[in-house]
Design a protein around this nucleic acid. Sequence first.
RNA 1: GCCCGGGUGGCGGAACCGGUAGACGCAAGGGACUUAAAAUCCCUUGGGGGAAACCCCGUGCGGGUUCGAAUCCCGCCCCGGGCACCA
Length: 808
Amino acid sequence: MNDTRDGVSAYDPAAVESKWQRLWEERGTNRVDLRAAERPYYNLMMFPYPSAEGLHVGNVFAFVGSDIHGRFRRLQGFDVFEPLGFDAFGIHSENYALKINQHPARLIPANIDNFRKQLKRVGLMVDWSHELQTIDPRYYKWTQWVFLQLYKAGLAVRRKAPVNWCPECKTVLANEQVIDGNCERHPGTRVVQRYLEQWFFTITKYAQRLLDNLSWIDWSESTRLLQINWIGRSEGAELVFRTSSGEEIRVYTTRPDTVFGATYLVLAPEHPLVDRLTAPAQRSAVDQYRDRVSRMDLVSRRVGSKEKTGVFTGAYAANPATGEEVPIWIADYVLMEYGSGAIMGVPAHDERDFEFARKFGLEIRRVVVPASGGEGELPFTDWDGVLVNSGAFDGMPCREAARAITQWLSERGLGSFQVQYRLHDWCISRQRYWGPPIPIIYCDHCGTVPVPEQDLPVELPYIEDFRPDESGISPLARHEEWYRVPCPQCGQLARRETDVSDTFLDSAWYFLRYPSTEFDDRPFDPELTRKWLPVDTYIGGNEHATLHLMYSRFITMALHDLGYLPFEEPYKRFRAHGTIVKDGAKMSKSRGNVVVPDEYIAKWGADTFRMYLMFLGPYQEGGDFRDEGIAGIRRFLDKVWVLVKNARRDEGEIDRAAMRKLHQTIRKVTGDLEELRYNTAIAALMEYVNTLRETGVTAASMVEPLIVMLSPFAPHFAEECWEILGHDRSVFEASWPKWDEKLAEEEQIELVIQVNGKVRSRMQVARGITEEQAVQRALQDEAVQRFVKGRKVRKAIFVEDRLVNLVT
RNA sequence: GCCCGGGUGGCGGAACCGGUAGACGCAAGGGACUUAAAAUCCCUUGGGGGAAACCCCGUGCGGGUUCGAAUCCCGCCCCGGGCACCA
């Protein structure tokens, strides 16, 4: 039963895998000497958040794809550093701990241990001696250090900002925790908007650089586009509308060409000028409206396509182009965070303004007609138009007019060219417990004082009751002996900042730490950093395209500018992997279609599981997980096993076709691995195995390259095969096979013969046949003659070694 | 609404720059081995017509460019993802 038909002992994944995992550990196969390495290659995968549910197939898919890349590079002769760690702070961990009534300080380490155990079973080439955990004070000491560097550089600022507040949880929620205006944990509870003092990193100062560098970094196109859209650069003008009382209202517009059609202004309800502008008669209506808006949560306020609301302030300002007085309104469709928090209403040429003007009976004045002639229905928002009712600018195309009008107004001090970004500053404050405390002390005498670097880390105290309470202040504030602290400057009693920082800060610099995990006196060793960074290849999901990847680019740029890093982009090459679905649907607990990796690894072995995941679709697109398919991979490995067991050293003459296939396979697999096309690489290996079986080739020299090429996918299996083939060192110390272009060449090729573009025949010809010969032979072909019949061949198209097309 | 990605056999998916559509695998059917089954091995497998040689049709839909289109262009439909009152 344990024997195959060929009489060799069967492949037993469990035995092979535990054996090699043990040996790798004993021999330190996956460890790299970071100082001595000659060809450093930093292969990074996005570190996991260790949830209580354990490792997910999505994680395994991502890690295996990255691991294959690392192993491939190693076989190509690089010293590959492949570290892994755990991203274990944050609101998800904390909420889960609350839910099951456990303390995160006990729960999370247990989850990490479980995760590590699961990860080790997958057989990754991870150097575990450099593991890091974001919850480790040895790590977050340096997260706090990063904060202090940004603070000193003026990139960390404190200001009031609106946040989502759940009255039931008595705490702040992230935008994604607000579902239809309600708290995700309390479906019946409306979330409200509150203003709180928050710490921000001013990432917007780097917006243009973050955008510019995207033009040259080697990243997945999909990820680059997500970042470009997220940064959201737009070009336009800031125009000034003056009130008779002399107030200046600045509005940002991308369409300065339509300023002659601006018949009203709208300010955000929170706009600082509203108080001063509002006329006595409108005071109560304005106050009421502002009050109503402030009670809404941030998310539902931003949900579009709802009915427009707003009130008139009773004030007027002069349109800078026409000089006419236009009414000033406030409305919640104008956002304080974008532009100047005020807009000019051009109802004839803007969808939203049109809707607003119609509802409130404001004047709609056309100033653009379509360039193609005719009137065009209002609102007409195309750029492809010509100005009318615009004084001296009548007849000018929109693009040109936008420049000319801005220029004209700027000469009169009423406007300027302006660039805007959608990107907003990064709020890093969390009124929560489970995170690194922000290292700031508030002193009544000295003001805001950064914690001196030698006092780091500011340890997160163990608090049994970390629940938010009635006070609505971070739980850390209740811990008196921690909260009350002498001021580092004057020594008098002061207070600690009680907010902790966002988890995205933990992960914004972790790749800098891996090579330097052994040091407690520096965040990252300069010499090791110069040698190993930036990261050579980073692989992860596009769900982190805008936040994590943007933040880590920003932190890297900031640290570069402060002189800590010799580079400003953290990841030389980034590739986004796809997602695994099951039965065409995303895996989720509610659908009950979650695939738990452990069961499959137990049943089929890690190698078969790894390979199956890589085979089910293109790595960068993802694929559909089906139970039936996995057997095919196991059958394939069994076939390879038999080839290895039957391999012979006394080789003799080797079949020409098999040799050709070998070289074609090496060429194909090498190219596919460079581009992470794992599914087609596996298919090529299968074809090669089929060829060896069909030709009956048993030469060890024909099997060995197969094992090397297979080893990134099925590392334990390959090690075992390599040993059976008589090697006493790891297959990962072998080198990647090379192909000989001449041996890969087919000498006989099949030439397709078409008549009028339809395939009518094929013929075996020598490679490199000339056009003349090919046409000559094609004309003699019986099938061709039938289709050409009496007609004259007007023209022949010849594609070398591919086809001849006869046109009649 | 805007910006991406995708739509190919019964299924997952191949097909480089416009040049043999369906590689590889799964499933299914038939056969060999077996007392029998499993495993393994061999064969068949896009649809239609035909005894066969062969022929016709076929890559979401409708047009177009081209000797030739899954691939390029125009207009739609559907699925997945991102952004979304961003002025």
